[in-house]
Computed example of a mutant assay.
Amino acid sequence: MFSIEDIRANYKRFPDTKIENIARNESKGLRKEVLTVLKDEITRRQLNLSLISWVDAKTKSFEGLERKNLIQKIQYQHCPKCFEKTKLLGFETHTVKSFLIGTSSSRDEQILCASCGKTAKLNAIAITFFTGWWSGKGFLLTPFTIVKDALNFLFIDKISDRILNAFVDDRTGSFRRYGTDDSVLSRLIKWKNNSDDNSTY
């Protein structure tokens, strides 16, 4: 592990764009003493001081009752798909699509009501069933993916808890800076649902 002196020396060598990127996108996983180095470097370079506010917001995680209340508030937003105000859950879907010369597989997470989430899972299974077999790799992946998504119906609550907790962790900075009003929660849920696409080829 690098000493703080080594880290401070490294940060001094980084260009401004690297420091800004660390502040915006990587600060959450840094140790407290490294965060101090980062904030010192932002100040020394006279970069936008809002970066320090962002680092502070992003690294002040939600714990205990505060986390529980936030997750409950997320769960009782309008469903972003059907717009019904009912309990929302985190759903995970997998799809495999094959072509003669290649295969694409994707894993998506969405926050939806139970009805829309189950429909999304069934649609993903159907897409995989009809389009997944048409390459060597797809022929191997397709049955595994179908069985995995089907079995996941037995663990909806457990998977939902994981996805919702990860959502809170990933968006901590946004919640701290912009609050947890319904409009903010709704916008961040829609953004998550539209942006999550972990495809591999």
Rank of each mutant, 00 (worst) to 15 (best):
Arg177Asp: 09
Leu164Met: 14
Arg44Gly: 08
Leu49Val: 13
Asn152Val: 00
Asn198Thr: 00
Leu154Ser: 12
Leu151Tyr: 03
Ser3Arg: 07
Leu51Ala: 12
Thr17Ala: 04
Gln75Asn: 10
Gly117Ala: 10
Arg107Thr: 13
Gly64Met: 11
Val184Cys: 01
Asp169Lys: 10
Thr95Cys: 00
Thr119Pro: 00
Glu33Asp: 13
Lys85Thr: 10
Glu84Trp: 07
Ser50Glu: 15
Tyr201Ser: 07
Ile125Pro: 07
Gln77Ile: 15
Asp197Ala: 02
Phe153Trp: 01
Glu92Ile: 12
Ser105His: 01
Ser199Cys: 12
Glu84Asp: 05
Leu164Asp: 12
Glu66Ala: 13
Ile159Gln: 05
Asn198Met: 07
Phe144Val: 06
Lys158Gly: 13
Cys79His: 00
Ile111Phe: 02
Ile7Thr: 10
Lys68Thr: 02
Val37Gln: 08
Thr36Leu: 14
Phe155Ile: 11
Lys81Gly: 00
Lys87Met: 14
Trp191Lys: 13
Val147His: 08
Asn10Asp: 11
Thr119Tyr: 12
Leu112Thr: 05
Ala57Val: 06
Thr145Ser: 05
Ile163Leu: 11
Lys97Leu: 08
His94Leu: 15
Ser61Glu: 01
Glu66Tyr: 15
Met1Gln: 13
Gln75Arg: 15
His94Tyr: 13
Glu41Ser: 07
Ala124Ser: 02
Lys81Thr: 02
Cys82Met: 04
Asp149Glu: 06
Val37Phe: 11
Gly29Gln: 07
Ile4Thr: 13
Phe91Tyr: 07
Ala120Ser: 10
Phe130Gly: 04
Leu154Glu: 06
Ala166Tyr: 10
Lys190Asn: 02
Phe14Glu: 14
Leu185His: 07
Asp40Pro: 09
Phe167Asp: 01
Ile7Arg: 06
Lys73Met: 08
Ile159Gly: 03
Trp191Gly: 01
Phe14Lys: 14
Tyr11Ser: 10
Leu47Asn: 12
Ile22Leu: 15
Ser27Leu: 05
Thr17Arg: 05
Val96His: 01
Leu100Glu: 02
Asp196Ser: 11
Asn123Lys: 15
Glu63Phe: 14
Gly117Trp: 01
Glu33Phe: 12
Asp197Gln: 01
Lys28Cys: 08
Ser98Gly: 02
Leu112Cys: 02
Ile127Asp: 05
Glu84Lys: 09
Lys87Thr: 13
Glu41Ile: 03
Phe62Asn: 08
Gly179Val: 11
Pro15Cys: 09
Ile7Tyr: 07
Ile163Thr: 00
Thr172Met: 05
His94Lys: 12
Ile52Met: 04
Ile42Phe: 06
Trp191Thr: 10
Leu51Gly: 14
